[in-house]
Nucleic acid binder design. Structure first.
Lengths: 338, 338
DNA sequence: ATTAGCACTCGAACGTTGTGAGTGCTAGAG
DNA sequence: CTCTAGCACTCACAACGTTCGAGTGCTAAT
């Protein structure tokens, strides 16, 4: 009973089930997959695979379908496919004429959802260390202010803060001038202590503490992490795989973002080229019938951002992995040269 | 055959069908609705209503369900319900501690989707005429620039433009200073001609035409109209009304925005307090089984922005209309006092 | 180790039948 | 002229039984 053939059987089952969405039986395998053995032999192998928990049968007299563990084994043993040439071209043409960071992200997520025919998810790139170009402070009412930080690498961060106490126009303008003097030309790391010093120097400035805080986080690129998604309708296309009512929770989770972000972070921590989470591996009820294929882009270590595709566990893993990897690579290039 | 009773029958059919999602028959109506007549009489009325095209039967021996026209008649004759007290409180508490325009919009859309148990849609408020506070220009590479316009009412608009030709740092800084001098303190209407004059004065400035254009549209509040939506999972809850595969196109249309924006504009043009589009009235395949309840907020005439709820034609119109109106009113207050 | 053969299982598809909700119509009462 | 009672009729739907066949596990032979 060769180990190799058993793996081949598993792969054939996965591929068959993915493409037809029907349980695959021993006879069908013997006919279509070219394993050179009879259906009886395949049945034996299947029994062994079932013993290992890699495949299961939905009911007694049906064929086999892969379990989450089966998909996992399959994914770990398969090199991600080469991307089809037309898809490659699509990536180049579609992303190259983006005008704007927002535009790049938006285009990427749409592109990825089209390539994979799944729901695509793209996290906004984490900003790089770059000089502050200008801080704009606008007084709104007597105790609130708008803080805008413009960085040299063409990012604009804004936030609204409530001041420590009511301030006059004059006080406000003075502080704004001073903060600009201290800040402009510095990078986030050197800027934070400098601002703290200014803040301490004169008790008069106490009210500006929230502003300083906002400037610092703004210079770092803001605190809010965001993901955008596209292709939600692909979930309905797969509605037979999911029981139909499994797609509601997924939509909620996509809108909620927080769970999704947690998962993406976990996947980033794995530090692989392309990482895959299958069904229950996500440890989330909403995603218990869903797989996520994700890759990092635009940096390494903490600076990495993520993008990925998300769909039913019964998905074309090699193809999806190839598309995700390709878009991630291309996006890395764009973000770095921008 | 009293006209009034016939209307009552129609209303009873709508209400019954909305709450049970099953066709309602003459006998059931005679029992539950207190019309004081027998089922036979109701049958006669039903025949008349069917003649008018207001109701239909899904198959021969079934009860009646309202047609789009039936819902329309119903909606036109029903005063929108009073909002329930807990809902009223929810609006106040949920929206009052928003920190930010973005935050307001985001909270509104979530709130509305919860109140109506439908998909909620909120358009970003159209900006009001307000002074330009500062224009920040950042040179990116040799022929591109980032344009940031900060308005006195705490808006920040940014865009990236490609310059007419390569420019040096010095040229660029000069132009930036000049543009600020001309622009700051002016409102969009007075600002545009002033900038044009500056542009004409010296052929040297020709390359800056795209920048000027960006400043003008930025001051006006940008060109891109955006809507955000929330509660997409409510579509799946209603999946029995829709045939399940009708929700895909709706999701696509929501992501696409353009169709949705067109519809909202059309509805704004009707100029009613709350306007309702029912099923085929939308004139869009994607929304042919979907109703939209929308209201304007934050201004009048062209300045109005829209928000609304969107769900299957079999929807609780009075309740939805009440919620939409209430949120719109509250949002108007917030946007105006901001 | 592999294969052919065989008995067995059980879901899906199909046909039949019964049931009841709902209808339209007619004739009579107010 | 309006309403009601009564009745025959229609037809989706559920329940039930049957058949069919894909797929299995096991055994004995190669």
């Amino acid at each position: 009973m060769s180990e190799d053939r058993r793996r081949a059987v598993l792969h054939a089952i996965v591929e068959g089930y993915v493409s037809t969405s029907e349980p695959v039986g021993s006879k069908a395998l013997a006919d279509t997959a070219h394993l050179g053995v009879s259906s009886a032999t395949i049945r034996n192998d299947m029994a062994a695979l079932e013993e290992e928990g890699l495949i299961a049968q939905p009911h007694t007299s049906a064929g086999r379908i892969p379990t989450d563990a089966g998909y996992r084994r399959f994914v770990d043993h398969v090199a991600s496919a080469a991307l089809q040439a037309p898809h490659k071209r699509a990536i180049t043409t579609f992303l190259s004429d983006a005008v704007d960071l927002n535009d790049v992200v938006e285009r990427s997520v749409r592109l990825l959802s089209q390539l994979t025919r799944q729901v695509a998810v793209v996290q906004y790139p984490s900003p790089r260390e770059s000089q502050v170009r200008r801080v704009e402070l606008v007084r709104i009412g007597v105790d609130r202010a708008l803080v805008v930080v413009v960085s040299a690498d063409a990012r604009v961060e804004q936030s609204t803060v409530t001041l420590g106490r009511d301030v006059t126009e004059v006080e406000f303008e003075d502080a704004a001038r001073a903060i600009n003097e201290v800040t402009v030309g510095r990078t986030p790391t050197t800027l934070a202590p400098a601002l703290e010093v200014w803040l301490q120097r004169d008790r008069q400035h106490e009210w500006a503490a929230p502003v300083v805080e906002a400037v610092i986080t703004g210079a770092r690129g803001g605190t809010v992490e965001r993901v955008v998604f596209a292709g939600a309708s692909n979930l309905t296309r797969a509605a037979n795989d999911f029981e139909t009512d499994a797609i509601g929770p997924v939509l909620d989770a996509l809108e909620e973002q927080v769970v999704l972000l947690r998962l993406l972070h976990e996947m980033a921590a794995e530090g692989r080229d392309v990482s895959v989470r299958i069904g229950a591996e996500n440890g989330e009820d909403a995603f218990s019938r869903t797989s996520i294929v994700a890759a990092g882009y635009g940096g390494s270590g903490d600076a990495v951002s993520l993008l990925g595709a998300l769909g039913p566990t019964r998905m074309d893993y090699p193809g999806t992995m190839a598309a995700v990897r390709a878009v991630a690579r291309y996006l890395s290039r764009i973000v770095e040269t921008e």
